[in-house]
Computed example of a mutant assay.
Amino acid sequence: MTPTPDTFGMQRSLRQCLSHMAALLYRQGHVLETVTIPHRGLDRSALRVLDGESREWSTCQRVLESSAAATWNAQQRFVLTGLGRELLFDMFGEGAADCA
């Protein structure tokens, strides 16, 4: 899907947040599957650690949630939605976070 002028800025911001999230997860010893598999996700404790590691994390989390790229699963863990997974796979390749 080609972004329109209206969605280009949001997609760029989403991509920046996804990239930042991937780097933070890696530094904390997580894998991308932590957030790409709907029944896994990050609990609030893990999110506090990410927030402590990066001044930008809380903003990125809000951007991901407000754009519907991330949500809270039934276990109250932070996970990417289909949109978030699609953008992440577009950026890093499907094999980077294989959900199968």
Rank of each mutant, 00 (worst) to 15 (best):
M1I: 05
M1T: 07
M1E: 05
T2L: 12
T2G: 07
P3S: 00
D6N: 03
T7N: 14
F8K: 11
F8Y: 11
M10G: 05
M10R: 13
Q11F: 08
R12P: 04
S13N: 05
L14Q: 12
L14R: 10
Q16Y: 14
Q16L: 15
Q16S: 12
Q16E: 13
C17L: 00
C17F: 02
L18H: 12
L18F: 14
M21A: 09
M21V: 10
A22R: 15
A23K: 13
A23G: 09
L24P: 12
L25C: 04
Y26F: 13
R27K: 15
G29M: 08
H30C: 13
V31Y: 06
L32H: 07
T36A: 14
T36K: 06
T36H: 05
I37C: 05
P38S: 02
R40I: 07
L42N: 07
D43T: 00
D43H: 08
R44I: 01
A46T: 12
A46Q: 14
L50Y: 02
G52P: 01
G52A: 06
E53N: 15
S54G: 05
R55W: 04
E56T: 09
W57R: 02
W57E: 07
C60Q: 02
C60R: 05
Q61W: 05
Q61T: 02
R62T: 04
R62L: 00
V63G: 03
L64C: 03
S66N: 04
A68G: 07
A69P: 12
A70K: 02
A70N: 05
W72Q: 09
Q75S: 15
Q75C: 04
Q75F: 05
Q75L: 10
Q76T: 03
L80W: 08
L80K: 03
G84Q: 07
R85W: 00
L87R: 09
L87K: 04
L88C: 11
L88E: 01
D90Y: 03
F92V: 02
F92D: 12
E94R: 14
A97M: 10
A97R: 10
C99M: 06
A100S: 15
A100L: 07
